[in-house]
Structures are given as structure tokens and as C-alpha cells.
Design a binder for these strands. Structure first.
Lengths: 365, 365
DNA sequence: CTGTTAGCGCTTTCAC
DNA sequence: GTGAAAGCGCTAACAG
């Protein structure tokens, strides 16, 4: 019985639509149509072709198809090592969503957060249909993409000049939630542990924190910079918490650093969290919920954000209209044991759609 | 000055080698040769072509090239959600190494650890040059791949029938190191927390532990199964540690579960680690070294293993000889605070190349 | 609904 | 070292 792929005897090259056509006694077009839904072909013919195809173990070549359709079904995903390491869920969900959309994720991991012309050429060279970038892209690079007709969606950053669509997390509203919570817990003197200087996500969160704290009449010291990693957070802690003038709260730009700070407090400095110092993060990575840390943090709605990013890129690929929009989803405040006050496990705010801006769109909220 | 990609005026379609040829006043072949190193072309001509190319922002299409060369420069990487979540470093390093090798990683994330014929067809359809699979592939599926001429390298598992190359971690030698260490620390009665029933990595590690413990005259209770996650480890702990007949040591099949067990001990059950119970893991993920856990574990040499996997797949792609080999790299025992005895921070064993088996190769060690 | 024809963007003989 | 022509595996008009 002809039951499986590759019953064809030889061990050699690719099985082509031509082979299938011959075996089924039909034209190549028939084979082509049999493998594309919505094509006008009788179900009888389709069945015949399918049978011949599975007998030979035929699978249409995406590459050949791409050459003619101008759609590779490849989505380029740009990430830094930092993202891969500290927020692996982003990559995971992106892959999942892209797969759902019938495409595949081609991962470009950048050692440094900077895409130059070579990088762009690389992307173009692999014929990706679109790019989702969780990395920094200079405005002129974005312009080149636009000129090339290569859709780009920025993840957790945006193009001030509106040269690309973007989806991000509304840190402003998140930080307002956090500031209110901290205030209630008695925070008087908070320090901010930022990511690398100039890192968009960190800058955004820092600015948001500053604004939120100001409007709550709380002080926020000048930011100290680390590199987003647990180790760097742990390392920055002694300086941040010098006995002389120790802050009562440390707000971190991401969870990994916050976890490092907590470890430093308890294991290096002999400080109790949240007794001596409260610590907060941002992202809500898996480890934040582990009882050893119980980190109060703002949950970046990764599932929603990635879903949105993929939706946007798919739309742009189909549309290619140059309309640019910026979507901001709302983070939730997840209160756990690393801060004072509130009930452990409380979740404040609803994640999901927040604001939507764009050349064509009005502000929603 | 013609300094950057896309100075070409229009915003339209792709720039082809034909366009470049016309601008440079040469043939298409010349353009082709200018972009392939080792092609016979004068440096003068090459320079002229390059200039025209960058003026137009031309980048050769990998797809068109692939169609003729039969090399897509795409490596399919098969992973389960579990791997992505619990050992993100594998994916990260794989991507890194593949990129180094001049190819790109096409990620296929599987919801369940099982590749069937459809999955295979999918892979073939995307014209990957080869596959690195950190997932279960049935022997007959492997045979189909072989028949198709699709090279496959198995990661952390192997084909008993030798139908694919593989690279893994020598858990047997690792467990011997661990058993010796535990014995020294006074372990008398150890339990094993395994991953899902039938999961190859877990089965392998369990068998290795059993053998190692036996040869040290230590007992190892029948395995309890969880699902590799922190949550599942935490959940399994109460059963594992029932007061009646509590084991003095829990050996876990991976770090994530071990971390969950530690959390359960300290926060749910009021047990001290390692005072009341010692806990060990496997993998040495980032969190294992965080002071809140200080998990004694066997370090899977991910960097070496992924490098080896990529080297092997590249060789097979170039060679296509059907020789199959199995490589086992050595894990290191990293002693930290979750076990008794030994000095915190001690590292036992050298990671790196261990055994190498294969139809053509002799056993090395 | 089905087959025939042309051609996607590139590389590769083969002449020169 | 360089150009002309053919063709990779498929889809997209176009007839019938």
C-alpha cells in the first residue's frame, strides 16, 4: 500500500510537481492547483493528484513558489542576545504567532543592538516578507525599508518619525499604577536601576517612572545604569544601597535586574526585602512569581503584544499601504512580596489593548 | 554622493541583478560573479559591479539562488515549548552557531514532542538544507528523511537504529560524578524527580542516575514524574517529601523542576535545603547559580553541544554521506549550596568532548 | 474546470 | 575573464 512519504524507490533528489503530474497523468498546473486552497479544481482531480503526491512523498517547494509569488512566508525577527536571555518568552510567543499565521520565523540575533546597512542587506537577501524588530533601527534604516517596500513592525520601541508600525507596552500607565502602590506602601525615597544607557525600553520606562513619581509627589533619584542582566543588578546593588543614604525602594527597568538586586540584598548585603528595601521589576518573567523572589512587577502582556505585532506585519504585507500606527498595550501591576502593602497576588489593571495612534487613527484612550 | 542603499528613486519592487548589470554596463553573469567569492572575475569588474549595486541598494536574492544551487541556507530547528521555556539557551546558542556558519535558523516550535509526516512535509516544503531536532523523531520518520536526502542531527537524543547523527550529553558520567558527591555528603535515601514519562532526555538521565547510584551502593527510589516545569516540581514536592518516609535527597531530571522543589521545601513545607533535604538539578540554567537557589547541578555544555550540532549538520549537508555518528559531550558537576559537602563553587569534571561513536569512528573514551 | 505557455531572479554551462 | 542562453520548480495569465 502506498501509505507514506517516499515510497518512491530511489534515494535521490527532490520530487517535483512535474513528477507528480506525470504519475497522476495530469498537467503541472493541476498539481499546483491541488496544493493551493481556493484554486479552481474539481475535487476528483484534486484527490487524484493528492494520491500521486503522497505516493511520491511530494511537498511543494516554498522557494520555487516564493520566486513567483513574491512571498517567502518568512518573517524576519530581530532580537538582541539580551532579549533572548532575559525575556525568552518574547521569542517563543513570536514564533508561535508567526506559525499560526502560516509563516515561519527567521531569527536574526544581534550581538549589539544596532542594525546597519549590512544587516538590512542581509534581511533583504533572505527575502523575508516582513520584519519584526525588537532592536534599535535608525530612522534612516527604517526609511530604506519603507522605500524597499519591506514592512517593519517595531516591538517595544517606536519610530518617532512614524516610519514604521509599532507595538509596545504603555509604561506610563503602568508606572502610575506602580507609583500609587509604592506610595501606599510607604515609599519615600526611591532609586531607579536602568538598563544600558540609551536602550529604548529602559529609557521609556525610566521616563514613565519619573513622570509617575512626580505626579505622586515622590522623589526618584537619578538613574543608575546596568546591563539588564541579573548579574549586573546584583553588582549594582551595593552602590545603590550604600548605608549612608539608602533608598527605601528600588525600581528596576526589568525583572532580571530586580531579581539580582533582591539576591544582593539578602545574600550579599544582609538587607531584608521588602523590610529594609522594596524592589520592583518590569516584565513579569516566570521567575518573578517564584516564591524565592515574589517580585512585584509590571506584567508586559507578551502574548497580546506578540499577537498584535504579527497581526500588524501580516496586514502590512498584504496591504503594503504605508499607514503607520503605534499600538500600546497595557501592563498589569502584579503585587507580590517584594513590596510593602497590598495583598500578595493582587493584580491591578487589565492587560490588553490600550492606546492606538496612527496617521489614520485617532487616539483611543 | 551615491552612498547608501536605495538611492534609486522609486519605491517599488525588488532590485534585480539585471538592473545592476544594466547600470554597470555588464552582463548578468558578471553581477552574479561579483557576489560570489571564488568566482573568476577581475577585481576591476567586481568593483564596478559593487558600486552599481550599492547605488541601487541591490542584494542578491537568496531564494532565486537557492532554486538553482539547491541550497537554501536555511536550517530547520525543531524544539518543543518545553525546551524554549526551560532551556532558552539552547535556542540562543543554536541560532548563534548557525548564523556563524552563514545560514539562518528557521524555528519550528512543536506543541507536542512528536513530529509526524505532516511535520516532515512542512520541513521539506520550506526547503531547509538540514534539520537540528531537539524533539522526538520516530525511526521511520528518520528513515524518510534519509531517503529524501535531508540531513538530520538529533540534539540530546539519538537514533538507536543509527538513522541520524546526534549530539548529546553524557549523563552516565555526569551522574557518576553526582552520585559520588552525594555519597560524600551523606545521602542514603534518594528520590528521583523525572520529566514526562517517555521523554528521552529524562529517561536517559534517570537510567544514568540509577546505574550510578547502584554502583555507589546507594538506593534510588522509583521515579516520580512531573513535566519539566518549575511549577510541576513545586507541585510534586509534597508527595515526594511526605513526612513518613522522607528521602534525604532529591535528584531532578532538570533544573527547572529542582528549583521548584527547593521553593516548595522552603516556602511550602518548611524544610531546609540542604539541611533537611538535598536537591540537585541538571542543565545549569542561569537561575541555578542565583544565590536564592545555589543549585548543585550537572552543567550541560550547551555552547559546545550546539557548536557540535551545527558542525555536524553542515558537514552532512556538504557531504551527504550517510555515515552516522553519535557524539556525547561531558557535563560538569557544579557544586553549590543545595547539597551537603563539597565546597560551594567547586566544579568537577571538564566539559567538552567526551565519547564519539559512529559507523566509521572508534570509541574514543 | 483543465492544459499550455511564459517567466519569477538567479547561476551555470558553454563559447569566445 | 566575460557574455549568451538555458533552466532551477513553481504559479499565473490565457485559451479551450
Amino acid at each position: 500500500m502506498a501509505d507514506s512519504i517516499g515510497d518512491g524507490t530511489e534515494g535521490g533528489g527532490r520530487v517535483t510537481s512535474y513528477d507528480v503530474a506525470r504519475l497522476a497523468g495530469v498537467s503541472q498546473s493541476a498539481v499546483s492547483r491541488a496544493f493551493r486552497d481556493g484554486a479552481s479544481i474539481s475535487s476528483a482531480l484534486r484527490a487524484r493528484v493528492q494520491r500521486a503526491a503522497r505516493e511520491l512523498g511530494y511537498a511543494p517547494s516554498n522557494i520555487a513558489r516564493a520566486l513567483i509569488t513574491q512571498r517567502s512566508r518568512l518573517i524576519g525577527v530581530l532580537v538582541t542576545e539580551t532579549t533572548t536571555r532575559n525575556t525568552p518568552d518574547i521569542l517563543f510567543h513570536l514564533g508561535h504567532e508567526i506559525q499560526q499565521a502560516g509563516s515561519r520565523m527567521l531569527v536574526f540575533t544581534l550581538a549589539v543592538d544596532r542594525v546597519d546597512e549590512d544587516g538590512l542587506r542581509d534581511l533583504l537577501s533572505f527575502d523575508v516578507d516582513g520584519v519584526i524588530a525588537a532592536t534599535t533601527l535608525a530612522e534612516d534604516t527604517l526609511e530604506l525599508c519603507a522605500r524597499r517596500g519591506l514592512p517593519v513592525v517595531l516591538y517595544n520601541r517606536h519610530s518617532p518619525a512614524g516610519q514604521a508600525d509599532s507595538v509596545g507596552c504603555d509604561s506610563a500607565s503602568g508606572m502610575r499604577l506602580l507609583a500609587a502602590h509604592l506610595r501606599q506602601g510607604g515609599t519615600r525615597d526611591a532609586a531607579f536601576l536602568a538598563g544600558p544607557r540609551g536602550a529604548p525600553v529602559s529609557e521609556d520606562r525610566l521616563a514613565a517612572a519619573r513622570a509617575a513619581f512626580a505626579s505622586c509627589d515622590m522623589s526618584l533619584r537619578p538613574a543608575v545604569h546596568a546591563d539588564y542582566s541579573h548579574a549586573s543588578g546584583r553588582q549594582a546593588a551595593p552602590g545603590l544601597l550604600a548605608p549612608r543614604r539608602r533608598p527605601d525602594t528600588i525600581v528596576c527597568a526589568n525583572d532580571a535586574m530586580a531579581l539580582g538586586v533582591i539576591d544582593a540584598c539578602r545574600h550579599d548585603l544582609g538587607l531584608a526585602v521588602p523590610g529594609d528595601v522594596a524592589v520592583t521589576g518590569f516584565d513579569d518573567v516566570a521567575q518573578a512569581s517564584w516564591p524565592a523572589y515574589a517580585l512585584t512587577t509590571l506584567a508586559q502582556p507578551i502574548a497580546e503584544q506578540t499577537r498584535m505585532a504579527v497581526r500588524m506585519i501580516v496586514e502590512r504585507i498584504e496591504d503594503s499601504s504605508p499607514a503607520r500606527e503605534r499600538r500600546l498595550l497595557l501592563p498589569r501591576l502584579v503585587i507580590r512580596g517584594s513590596t510593602r502593602g497590598g495583598h500578595d497576588g493582587d493584580v491591578i489593571g487589565r492587560s490588553g489593548e490600550g492606546r492606538k495612534e496612527g496617521s489614520k487613527e485617532a487616539l483611543l484612550s
